[in-house]
Write a protein that binds this DNA or RNA. Structure first.
Length: 666
RNA sequence: GCCCGAAUAGCUCAGCUGGUCAGAGCAACCGCCUUGUAAGCGGUAGGUCGUCGGUUCGAAUCCGACUUCGGGCUCCA
């Protein structure tokens, strides 16, 4: 008769033999791959103690998938070391949708290696190797892992692992060190790795995985460290889920704005101009113009004043703003102008450095400072579609979402300190309303706070600004996530993150509070009592960059823009040549209402014209044949393939105009 | 900036280990054709194989540098 213990299993108290494991409890449930005891995730093989609360962890849960992915990373590392015995192990944590493992190898992996590694992983999975946990003393671990320099480094960092590198905490936790042995059925240890766990019980518990790509990554995330070879993979609880994930990736690829931009003839990045510098073709420029026009109108309605400032300026301005002190790396190098030399090469006249502007705020400050300002003018909201140029590092440029030249829908609001909270709250409402009109309505907020290494000003002022932003963010009712150290050098910010049609999030609007630039520029206004006061400055961009937002919208809509933004809103398709005049007449009436309409008079056949318009994702195809002409009607074909025949022309026009005016998607 | 990969006609791509390798489809242009919801038929034109240099009797093919792109890392005021 063995000793009994009392435990709580999934909420129900039970009495079991001492030494009972979680695996015993959930033996019938094949989808349970780990257990949660109290707050900790543990292996199923862990023996339970008296009084513990045990919950099953399903493989299809967030925790379950993370464990599965972490275990798959182990299988990957084992496969790599079997094929490349000289490979040294870095770290191998689960990440969103998958996992990676870093290796130090003499030769980088190539795509063929990836296939071989994948095969080797399948072999290991087939062998049904057990993941066996074993606690080790630090010194013993050092001895056992003498051949793994990176693991040794992690042992040294134990406890501080969370700071050591993202993912390092998956290897060494804060408590005792553990090693996981991968044990073959005969009891032979096939492989081992320093790891905190937990893991799935055996390699056979990896139902579906795929290696995705190789890339280099700096050891512990620092540019100063050597680069390791990182292999990314994904793992899922079933083949179906894996396939669904791959389908989602394929869907994202279909929506890629760089691809759609070329297919829909919206924009391009000519090599001749340079990296990260887009040109907009007529159709892309039409969308951009519509976006700007609507935004402009909304800003007028909201009491903004419009300004316009140059693209380049003398260095002094950016010295004043401290951009050259804090941000010179991100700026294009200066143009040195106006220097004169005599015949001997001696400088007769000192030259000047001119810089392309990376931000508009210093220029707006000069507008503010151009004359005396009264409290009656505040809040003064200066708005500009300002073109800025940032010398992004060559490896980060990415389509329209990370360009070197782009247009900010930038405003700087100067207001009295006591008014800033109200102004910020109004601003947030304005931002969210406007974004919703562009078809985005699923948001959360992020509060980016000071990075002491990269900021100007004093702690107290930062604290005050951060508190106000936090308050406004919280009061908005939206979820507010912290982003420590993410602030600009001059102040904290709230950013609006928007979810798109397939659930990806994009950082769009930013609202930054700045007490320092007004000081640097010695901005002042006269208060009611005649005293001189310093205004607070709010930096804000709604789209962030118009180009980037256009890219985001392209992906959000998969190129099928709502009628008000669609570059071509209507294509008229005659069934045969003789129906063209009827459509021309309809087109004239649509144009008179401001609709962008084209009649396809090419000598393609009707079916081909439909295909062409469909591929261009034109919202409305208007067909006309004998029946329609006779009745003074047109026939609609919509993007989804549905049709509505014999619609009287006047009615058809109203339907289209109404959809454009209401900015709805169809 | 770092690592890996890529660059062939406007687009998508074929062209294997250097020697009929300058190719296809779509697009463009020219003809013919045209009646109801995603590709009618035929023809023509179009490329110093990203650029520059090297190896070689010979380079789209091998090597180097640069440019641009892609995937990551780092970065993103």
């Amino acid at each position: 008769m063995s000793e009994q213990i009392r435990i709580v299993v999934a909420g129900a108290e039970r009495q079991v033999d001492a030494g009972t494991t979680a695996a015993d409890l959930f033996a019938d449930e094949r989808t349970v791959i780990a257990a949660r005891v109290g707050d900790d995730l543990v292996d199923l093989s862990r023996a339970l103690n008296d009084g513990e609360k045990v919950e099953p962890v399903e493989i299809a849960s967030d925790d379950g998938r993370a464990i599965l992915r972490h275990s798959t990373a182990h299988v990957l590392a084992q496969a790599v070391q079997e094929l490349f015995p000289e490979a040294k192990l870095g770290i191998g944590p689960p990440v969103e949708n998958g996992f990676y493992y870093d290796f130090d190898v003499a030769e980088p992996f190539n795509p063929d290696d990836l296939k071989r590694i994948e095969k080797q992983m399948q072999r290991i999975i087939k062998e049904r190797q057990q993941f066996v946990r074993r606690a080790v003393a630090d010194d013993d671990a050092r001895a056992e892992l003498a051949g793994e320099p990176y693991k040794l480094e992690l042992i040294g960092l134990k406890g501080g692992a969370a700071d050591a590198a993202e993912g390092a905490s998956a290897e060494v936790g804060a408590g005792e060190l553990t090693i996981y042995d991968n044990v073959r059925r005969g009891g032979e240890v096939a492989w081992k790795d320093l790891c905190r766990g937990p893991h799935v019980p055996t390699t056979k518990h990896v139902p579906a995985f795929k290696l995705m790509r190789v890339a280099a990554a700096y050891w512990r995330g620092s540019e100063k460290n050597p680069q390791l070879q990182r292999i990314y993979g994904t793992a899922w609880e079933s083949k179906e889920e894996l396939q669904a994930y791959l389908d989602r990736l394929a869907e994202a690829e279909r929506r890629d704005h760089r691809k759609l931009g070329a297919e829909l003839d919206l924009f391009s990045f000519p090599d001749e101009i340079g990296s990260g510098l887009p040109v907009f073709h007529p159709k892309g420029a039409t969308i951009k113009m519509e976006m700007e026009n609507y935004s402009r109108q909304r800003h007028i309605d909201a009491g903004y004043s419009f300004v316009s400032t140059p693209h380049i300026t003398k260095a002094h301005l950016f010295e004043t703003s401290k951009h050259l002190e804090w941000y010179a790396d991100g700026m294009y190098p200066p143009m040195h102008l106006d220097e004169e030399r005599d015949a001997d090469g001696n400088i007769k006249r000192q030259g000047q450095d001119y810089y392309l502007k990376p931000m508009n705020c210093p220029m707006h400050n000069l507008v503010f400072r151009s004359r005396g300002r009264s409290y009656r003018e505040l809040p003064l909201r200066l708005f500009e579609f300002g073109a800025v140029y940032r010398y992004e590092k060559s490896g980060v440029v990415h389509g329209l979402t990370r360009a070197r030249g782009f247009t900010q829908d930038d405003a700087h609001i100067y207001c009295a300190r006591e008014d800033m909270k109200e102004e910020l709250a109004r601003l947030l409402t304005f931002v969210l309303d406007l974004l919703a009109d562009y078809g985005l309505d699923d948001f959360y907020l992020e509060l980016s706070t000071r990075d002491p290494e990269k900021s100007v000003g004093d702690e107290q002022t930062w604290k005050e600004a951060t508190q106000i932003l936090e308050q406004v963010g919280t009061e908005s009712g939206l979820e507010l996530l912290p982003d420590p150290g993410g602030a600009a050098f001059y102040g904290p910010k709230i950013s609006v993150q928007a979810k798109d049609a397939i659930g990806r999030t994009w950082q769009l609007s930013t609202i930054q509070l700045d007490f320092f630039e007004p000081e640097l520029f010695e901005l002042e206004y006269t208060a009611p009592d005649g005293s001189r006061q310093r205004p607070v400055m709010i930096h804000r961009a709604l789209f962030g960059s118009i180009e980037r937002f256009l890219g985001v919208l392209t992906e959000h809509y998969a190129g099928a823009f709502p009628p008000w933004l669609a570059p071509v809103q209507v294509v008229g398709i005659p069934i045969a040549d003789q129906h063209t005049p009827h459509l021309d007449d309809v087109a004239d009436r649509l144009r008179a209402r401001g609709v962008r309409v084209e009649i396809d008079t090419s000598d393609d056949r009707m079916q081909k014209k439909i295909r062409n318009a469909q591929k261009q994702k034109v919202p409305y195809m208007l067909l006309a044949g004998d029946d329609d002409v006779a009745k003074g009607a047109v026939s609609f074909r919509y993007r989804d393939g549905t049709q509505k025949n014999g619609v009287p022309v006047a009615e058809a026009i109203e339907e289209i105009v109404s959809a454009v005016e209401r900015r709805v998607q169809v």
